[in-house]
């Protein structure tokens, strides 16, 4: 059977692609991978289209068995992924044999890992996407997070994908999940609703990701922001990364599962490339906002796009020999590139 079987689901593991497009005008949330860069990179490393669905694994605890031979890649946060008790590299595709077990067992950096499997995950396409939208109970695997004993069908592995084994993201291109996290924003659309002092506070003071943070949005903890007059506006559309500030004065960053419209003022909007950084933050992590202009944001996006394009166009995989060396009774995995 072309499938994987879930042994332990972990806290929150869902099927995600790049989300539902075109239905926000009907009130339908986008959903999709929180860290879209990591998902796209994982897909490209196993020869999938960028927008194919993979698993988004939040915090360690997920465990699964491969019921067939597969080519896989793990990207995003470091959750200590092991296959059959051996750590595997992130940001590199590997071949796994039928019957192998993958375990995400230890929290390193970040908090969301992505598992892409060559051939993709075969769940029904609902409104143009395979993404799980938890609040609406639609998409993904039966509209919910994964549970023990779920069997996920995967697409057939083709010959070209077999040749992808070993494909990886160059080290310079691998995102670093540093603390405190610098998050770049473009001010607005409603920065005029805030006092000058509050905008200054927002751009200079540290904020922490609050406990009440999920795929819908991150509630921040930190200095309160003041509105000149009122916190409410006539409801309008909510961009991805919008930093909205309700009357209580503490900001909320709106993310993948955000509602499509809302009536709170938005002081700023996080630039596209930094959404993936946010996706890797945990409650308690520190954020510092930094203002950029839209031209700068577009340059950053272009750079990220170049990384993904280069990865997509990489067809020659360097031959790497792997050895296990035992020194003083400890084993080390070593690889040598030809």
């Amino acid at each position: 059977m072309n499938a994987i079987r879930v042994i332990k689901p972990g806290i929150l593991t869902t099927v995600q692609d790049l989300g539902r497009k075109g239905y926000q005008q009907y009130g339908m949330s986008v959903a999709g991978a929180m860290d879209s860069f990591a998902l796209q990179a994982a897909n490209l490393m196993v020869g999938n289209p960028r927008e194919e669905a993979g698993l988004e694994i939040t915090f360690p605890g997920f465990e699964a068995e491969f019921l067939c031979d597969c080519v896989i890649a793990v990207t995003g946060g470091d959750l200590g992924a092991k296959i059959n008790e051996r750590y595997i590299p992130r940001w590199k595709s590997i071949y796994v044999y039928k019957g192998s077990r993958i375990i995400f067992g230890k929290l390193g950096e970040g908090c969301r890992a992505y598992l892409a499997i060559a051939g993709g995950i075969e769940v029904p396409v609902i409104m143009g996407s395979k993404s799980t939208y938890l609040r609406g109970k639609i998409g993904g695997y039966k509209g919910r997070k994964l549970a023990a004993d779920d069997i996920l069908q995967i697409g057939k592995l083709n010959k070209a994908q077999m040749q992808m084994v070993g494909k990886r993201l160059p080290i310079v291109d691998i995102p670093k999940y540093k603390q405190p996290c610098k998050v770049r924003v473009v001010l607005g659309p409603q920065q005029d609703a805030f006092t000058k002092k509050s905008i200054q506070t927002f751009l200079t003071q540290p904020y922490k990701v609050g406990q009440e943070s999920d795929r819908m949005g991150y509630r921040l903890e930190g200095p309160k922001l003041e509105h000149i007059e009122k916190a409410d506006i006539i409801s309008d559309g909510i961009p991805l990364g919008a930093v909205q500030v309700p009357g209580h004065g503490t900001p909320i960053i709106m993310l993948a599962d955000r509602q499509t419209t809302g009536g709170y003022t938005k002081i700023a909007t996080v630039v596209s490339v930094d959404i993936s950084k946010l996706a890797q933050l945990r409650p308690g992590d520190e954020i510092r906002f930094e203002q950029v202009d839209v031209e700068e944001a577009h340059k950053l996006l272009k750079k990220q796009e170049d990384i993904l394009n280069r990865l997509q166009n990489t067809t020659t995989i360097p031959k790497i020999r792997s050895y296990t060396i035992i020194v003083n009774g400890k084993s080390y995995d070593v690889s040598v590139e030809e």
Binding site: P239, L240, A242, V271, V294, L301
Partner: peptide, 8 residues
């Protein structure tokens, strides 16, 4: 402008 992908 709202971020780098949206215009209101």
């Amino acid at each position: 402008l709202a971020g780098d992908q949206y215009i209101v």
